[in-house]
Design a protein around this nucleic acid. Sequence first.
DNA 1: ACGCTGACTATTA
DNA 2: CTAATAGCCAGCG
Length: 125
Amino acid sequence: MSPKEKHPLKQITPSGENDASFFESVFELVRQIPKGRVTSYGAIAAALGTKGAARMVGWAMNQSHFVKPAVPAHRVVNRQGRLTGKIHFAPPERMEQLLKKEGIQVIDDQIQDFEKYFWDPNEMI
DNA sequence: ACGCTGACTATTA
DNA sequence: CTAATAGCCAGCG
């Protein structure tokens, strides 16, 4: 992380999840990802209207571990279908295991037939 | 209020 | 396909 260590980023909406912040929107959208499917950060960001905020989506995933109901962050990968965020899991292998458990083949942090499992957030509308 | 950071993405080589 | 570079937006100190 950096000299400043992790980013505190206090808890999301201490009072509840009624906060309409960017992060909350991300969580709700990610929760709607069907089992056995995956999507990308950019797709989520685009679905929220902020196409260029793909990075923020990833950052939101960081908090997803503290949010409830739980967010299936393991179903969110980068555009290449690569598990770049696995390092943030505990343990990192967890992400890959979860995906395999849902029927998605992952080899060397790379999802096989990624396009086939890709789920477009805009379709769920 | 400004600047830095980041689980990204598109482009170029 | 991989590697390197630039651009991008939202949140925090």
